[in-house]
Simulated assay, not measured.
Amino acid sequence: MSDPSRIDPYLVDAYVWLYQQMAAQLTSAGHGAIWSWARITRPDLADSCKVSIGQVLLT
């Protein structure tokens, strides 16, 4: 993890899960993560996710 001391203690389990998912599915390696947000409307994003079998939309 990038800097575990900056994670809200209430959210540690969620971040651990996210990092595990990234490690299992990404071909790159490293100790950090960059979160990004799509510049798209939620309905359009949800529609595009419907065709992405096996993927999830975190909100």
Results as ranks from 00 to 15, higher is better:
15 Y>L: 07
1 M>F: 08
42 R>D: 15
16 V>P: 01
59 T>P: 15
51 V>G: 10
47 D>G: 04
11 L>I: 07
36 S>K: 02
43 P>T: 08
28 S>F: 02
19 Y>V: 04
11 L>P: 03
24 A>H: 02
9 P>F: 03
30 G>V: 01
56 V>W: 09
9 P>G: 03
13 D>Y: 05
27 T>C: 12
26 L>I: 03
29 A>G: 04
55 Q>A: 14
20 Q>V: 02
4 P>K: 14
49 C>W: 14
6 R>F: 13
4 P>Y: 14
12 V>L: 10
58 L>G: 00
46 A>G: 11
30 G>C: 01
35 W>Q: 15
18 L>E: 01
36 S>Q: 03
7 I>Y: 01
38 A>I: 05
24 A>K: 03
57 L>K: 02
24 A>N: 01
18 L>I: 04
49 C>Y: 14
22 M>K: 10
47 D>H: 06
28 S>T: 02
13 D>H: 06
17 W>V: 05
46 A>D: 13
31 H>R: 06
16 V>Y: 05
11 L>M: 11
57 L>S: 04
17 W>N: 05
9 P>T: 03
6 R>Y: 12
18 L>P: 00
22 M>V: 12
26 L>M: 07
49 C>D: 12
17 W>R: 09
38 A>N: 06
8 D>G: 03
36 S>G: 04
39 R>S: 08
33 A>P: 07
9 P>D: 03
35 W>D: 15
53 I>Y: 01
26 L>Y: 05
17 W>T: 05
42 R>T: 15
48 S>G: 10
28 S>N: 02
